[in-house]
Design a protein around this nucleic acid. Structure first.
Lengths: 356, 356
DNA sequence: GTATTTTATGAAAACGTTTTCATAATCTTT
DNA sequence: AAAGATTATGAAAACGTTTTCATAAAATAC
């Protein structure tokens, strides 16, 4: 008869076959406290004990109950993420990196989509707060101007990181943004250098800092070159395929038509290319087109589209870096970085803006 | 002096300003049990009481602690998801729907990426199991042939749903798959009908049921039309851009070249189109090309690429439907659907396979 | 060899809910 | 009006950890 009393635990007629810390304690004639310490690499536990515990845990197929431990220790090892939509190229890439990097540090990621609805975004902050996430990452809705639904996290000392679409400086959260002014400035200058004199601009809603900054960049470049800006050639709208087509129609049924177009996302730029093809408008001969985000489609369409690379993987990487640092010195340490983290952009020039 | 004793709770010098069920109980002179029942819409609670509780909860900014409730009730209202990569078009779309639909039913989604590594996939099952997810959704690695790391969920009565890349029938889990045989069969027939006689086939690793089924569909169509299948024109490989280009080089440096290509994903098909452009091979004149998945890029490239639509949103929708049903009659009910759910496919024909 | 520090363990409380059991209050039925 | 059924509430245990406090054992210092 072997001394495998503990095996009874596994086969006992309990409703659940889940082994707990108490089962390990019983099997080894130790207290639950010691088991917990051993499993958590607490310094005050004998090497031999730790080894025994680890082995027994393995043997019993023990798995820590995250809810119990989270309840007691007030940590969940879970980070929440709120984004408009998973399936946008830029965001999909950012998420990929965030999830991979967080996993390396032992954190889970709960992903929630606002579908670009402010009320949904608001609701999701409730859900994630109730889930007691250790930190929150958010790319807000374009319509989000009031950020008060994030206040509860700040008050509760939970780090919040905004990226892409961020609140104004001064909010007690970490901000990670791209060089939107510069991206737009470079693109516009590039169009001008390629010979464009009458440049139209498809922008997003000005409720978002993103498009404010880009428009400023656009205007700066135009101004520097003494080019007139026509108010009715700047469009503020949701950046969809359909809207972009409508804009093109409106623009090209007039007598004076633009010879350059700076669209604020690639979907719009692609729609413009398609319209030009349909109407036999020569791109880049008669009209040069640039987009934003360097979506893979820009490289594939004919003509390929000049766009601004935003390095989504860099964004994701920096987000996790910042987060881990903030989570390290919890209690006491700053819950946010005082200055925004800026991710550089790069203009990728392609056929749609070529000269000759 | 107003009777707002309960306000003290909010401002008391506690370390955390989190209000609990006990605070509501105290404020209303009720027991925590009643509060809990009121909040959970338990039938045995007076209408007036429920109203009072709701109001006070609102007033105190109460938010349920998911960990505490999960610990006690053994439910987390969280579903785990394991996929190869978030940023693949098909998966991004599936996730979008899953997350949105699950949220409607009050479930959170923890998304994990295996990066197509079997060992990572194995590790993630551990993590998600320890998190006590109420259910698991998985799209496995192409190399996953042993599914034993999912056994713990099955044994623990936790529903598991596989999609896209699934284990053989008979595993105690719900299976959701596309009509892979049919998709490949239709595509091949279409190529043949368009006049192709020498069709090459870029397949994935045969470790996955996906590519087994598709290859069977391809072979069936070829056989039906009495076309010879050349072993060396069937390639089993990781479906990357680079690999596809290599295949094209290999194929077109021979004397006898194919006049049709059926690629098992769109990335490969697009790579083939690019190669053809570089080498001035007329598509669809000299070579007709078809892909799989109906990635947005297929519609945009010139020539646009024939592909197979898999309806990712349908897939996501059906996954959640099945899940909710399984979770409803927990305890006792089946933990899986005995027969696989099949999502139809549709061949989208485009310029790359057009005749004359 | 005693006093002190350091290391190692255990007992018990705590985390915030849910749920069982008991009981009180109310409503039906006779 | 008594008996039974139903509705409404409370007390207390439970979920599986972590952590505080106390104390025992070992190591170090005097």
């Amino acid at each position: 008869m072997l001394d495998c009393d503990y095996l009874k635990i596994m086969t006992a007629g309990k409703k659940t076959y889940q082994n707990t810390i108490l089962d390990i304690a019983e099997a080894l004639k130790l207290s639950p406290a010691t088991i917990s310490r051993a499993l958590n690499n607490h310094p005050y536990v004998k090497e031999k004990t730790r080894k025994d515990v680890m082995e027994m845990a393995q043997k019993l197929g023990y798995r820590r109950n995250h809810m119990a431990s989270g309840l007691r220790s007030n940590r969940t090892n879970t980070v929440g993420l709120i984004i408009p939509r998973v399936s946008m190229f830029f965001h999909a890439e950012v998420i990929t990196t965030i999830q991979n990097d967080l996993h390396k540090h032992g954190y889970n990621l709960i992903i929630c989509q606002s579908n670009d609805s402010v009320s949904m975004e608001r609701e999701l902050t409730e859900t994630l707060f109730a889930s007691r996430v250790d930190a929150l990452i958010a790319a807000c809705t374009l319509q989000t101007v009031d950020f008060s639904h994030f206040d509860k996290f700040v008050e509760h000392q939970t780090p919040v990181i905004f990226y892409d679409r961020v609140p104004v400086d001064g909010y007690k959260a970490t901000l990670i943004k791209g060089e939107d002014f510069k991206g737009a400035y470079l693109t516009t200058k590039h169009l001008i250098a390629a010979g464009c004199k009458r440049i139209a601009h498809i922008s997003g809603p000005l409720t978002s800092n993103l498009y404010q900054d880009r428009e400023a960049g656009f205007l700066k470049a135009m101004e520097e070159h003494g080019l007139p800006v026509q108010k009715e050639w700047i469009f503020h709208q949701e950046l969809t395929h359909e809207n972009a087509k409508l804009v093109m129609q409106a623009l090209f049924e007039k007598d004076i038509v633009p010879d350059g177009l700076f669209a604020n996302n690639d979907t719009s730029a692609i729609a413009a290319i398609e319209y030009a093809k349909e109407q036999n408008i020569d791109v880049p001969g008669k009209l040069k087109i640039a987009g934003y985000s360097n979506d893979p489609r820009t490289a594939i369409i004919t003509p390929s589209v000049t766009s601004v690379e935003q390095f989504p993987n860099q964004v994701g990487k920096r987000i996790v870096e910042a987060l881990i640092e903030l989570l390290k010195h919890e209690e006491g340490g700053q819950m946010y970085k005082t200055e925004a983290i800026i991710i550089p952009v790069e203009l990728i020039t392609r056929a749609s803006t070529a000269t000759n």
